[in-house]
């Protein structure tokens, strides 16, 4: 009983941490620009796929990972520069459609430039499972957890102690005032896309050893990350991570105790529930009526 529960919990926490990382990317971009980036899942895909193909080209894994993340960051910058800045005044619906277009475009490019196959990535430190009260835990899960904590600490430092980070926070609270204070909003928007692309790509590298990676891997992961961000209260970075864990655990428990077939429904039922009954997210701070 306990071992079973623990097993589900571990897998829920692992996948939830990934959702949280992706959700964090949504929150960072939303705070800087009030854009929901529907191409967020494609950053995850780029992270995984680029690493696979760079390693296949003979690069050592650490270098491949760094290059893959840098590549995703570049794509993020291009998306902000071409997709978002040139379409100011497109309105919420317009911006949603632009990022959806970017998402389809990137997936199509990935299928042509790389391929349509599933690819594994080696885990960071072997795959000998660790036994805990009869449940098994993959070392990769620990790496994912460690990465999540490290990133939270780094972001906290960035937002609280660096000039740029503080500027981003100010801009999130009141863009107009921030602009009047001489903060360059455009630069912040680009930076937020770069940062969240890098976060997404890292999530893609971390999750690939568990789920494999492929050109369309970002579709569901992106939506789940969005779910995490909304459950946590859109624009609340810590909430996004907590939201990711909530969605991940709910999914794992459904898969474990009911049927794995229905696990994807859970995430969306949670989203609808939160949207309709807790419009501020589970952890507050949202502007449902400021569209």
């Amino acid at each position: 009983m306990l071992s079973e529960f623990l097993q589900f919990l571990f897998s829920g926490l692992t996948v939830g941490a990934i959702y949280g990382l992706i959700g964090l990317g949504f929150a960072v971009i939303y705070n800087a620009s009030h854009v929901i980036n529907f191409a967020q899942g494609e950053f995850v895909m780029i992270g995984g796929m680029a690493t696979v193909f760079l390693m296949a080209a003979g690069l050592p894994m650490p270098l491949a990972v760094v290059l893959a993340i840098a590549g995703a960051a570049l794509v993020g910058w291009l998306l902000a520069r071409i997709g978002i800045e040139t379409a100011r005044g497109a309105g919420v619906v317009g911006l949603i459609i632009i990022t959806i277009g970017a998402s389809i475009l990137l997936r199509g490019l990935a299928q042509v430039v790389w391929d349509r196959n599933f690819h594994p990535l080696p885990p960071i430190s072997g795959d000998a499972p660790i036994h805990v009260f009869g449940a098994t835990l993959l070392p990769q899960s620990l790496w994912i957890g460690a990465a999540l904590i490290a990133i939270m600490a780094a972001l906290r430092f960035f937002f609280d102690h660096t000039r740029t980070g503080k500027a981003m926070q100010a801009a999130a609270i009141d863009p107009l005032a921030a602009q009047l204070m001489g903060i360059d909003i455009r630069r912040l928007v680009r930076l937020s896309f770069v940062l969240s692309a890098a976060l997404g790509a890292l999530a893609g590298v971390l999750v690939a050893p568990i789920t494999m990676t492929y050109a369309n891997v970002g579709v569901m992961l992106g939506l789940k990350g969005f779910a995490a961000a909304i459950v946590g209260g859109l624009g609340n970075p810590l909430g996004a991570i907590a939201g990711g864990l909530v969605v991940g655990i709910a999914e794992a428990m459904t898969a474990g105790y009911l049927s794995s077939a229905w696990k994807d429904v859970v995430a969306f039922v949670i989203i609808l529930f939160v949207l309709l009954f807790l419009p501020n997210g589970l952890f507050g701070r949202a502007e449902v009526h400021r569209a």
Partner: peptide
């Protein structure tokens, strides 16, 4: 709901 929230709800 409006904007992003409506998009997400209909998508879900």
């Amino acid at each position: 709901l409006r904007g992003h929230y409506l998009a997400m709800a209909t998508l879900g």
